[in-house]
């Protein structure tokens, strides 16, 4: 009997998901359909998290399952399918901060929802971020931080994007424990959240024109 992949992801049944994905690949099932089912499971977990009905643990574990699924699915994907993307995002923890947990959770969720993500890591110099924006022309840049001095660095970065005429071509998101709406205003960002899934939903809704 076939396992409902979306449900299994939602219930965090890792072994069952991996076995089912392998079985379906062996049977020649369409990889995009497999991926979509897993993605649906993750979306349910993410929406529940955002509604306060699920926990960060579950959001993370569903993301980990999805990453494992991607590892075995990727070699089976056609070049066309691999390149299909919902949008492009640059994620970074800027200069002065080396925390990466929150940012990496957002990266996993964005990838699972079909975004191409350039994760620049931590302690990223402002100039390097701007150069990357010039190179990949993203739809979004996201900054995550746990330290208040980093709010100034976020502002410097946004100012530099303005100077380089890049700001109006993308949306800026900020997140992490010390960010607030007041910080968003100060930085000149479009969006602020403490909730990884809310950030992902923001990207989805912008790309869908909502």
């Amino acid at each position: 009997m076939s396992v409902n992949l979306a449900e299994a992801v939602e219930k965090l049944e890792k072994d069952s998901v991996m076995q089912e994905v392998q079985k379906r690949l062996d049977n020649g099932e369409d990889v995009l359909r497999i991926l979509e089912e897993c993605r649906n499971g993750m979306t349910v977990v993410g929406d529940k998290f955002q509604a306060g009905e699920a926990f960060l643990a579950e959001l993370m574990l569903s993301g980990e399952i999805f990453k494992e699924v991607m590892k075995i699915i990727k070699p089976h994907m056609t070049q066309e399918a691999s390149q299909e993307k919902k949008g492009t995002v640059i994620m970074a923890t800027l200069q002065g901060d080396i925390h990466d947990l929150g940012k990496d959770i957002v990266v996993t969720l964005l990838e699972a929802r079909g975004f191409e993500v350039h994760n620049l890591g931590v302690d990223v110099p402002v100039g390097a971020l701007v150069e990357k924006v010039k190179e990949v022309k993203p739809d979004f840049v996201g900054f995550s931080s746990l330290l208040t001095p980093n709010i100034q660095v976020m502002k410097q970065t946004v100012d530099l994007l303005v100077e380089n005429n890049l700001r109006d071509k993308l949306k800026v998101m900020i997140g992490g424990g010390i960010t607030t709406d007041k910080a968003r205003e100060f930085v000149g960002a479009d969006f602020q959240t403490l909730d990884a899934n809310e950030g992902v939903n923001y990207c989805v809704s912008v790309m869908e024109g909502n």
């Binding site: 208040t148 001095p149 709010i151 010390i178 960010t179 607030t180 007041k182 910080a183 100060f186």
Partner: peptide
């Protein structure tokens, strides 16, 4: 007292 209030407020 929130960290951001102490630094930005």
């Amino acid at each position: 007292v929130p960290a951001s209030l102490l630094s930005l407020g």
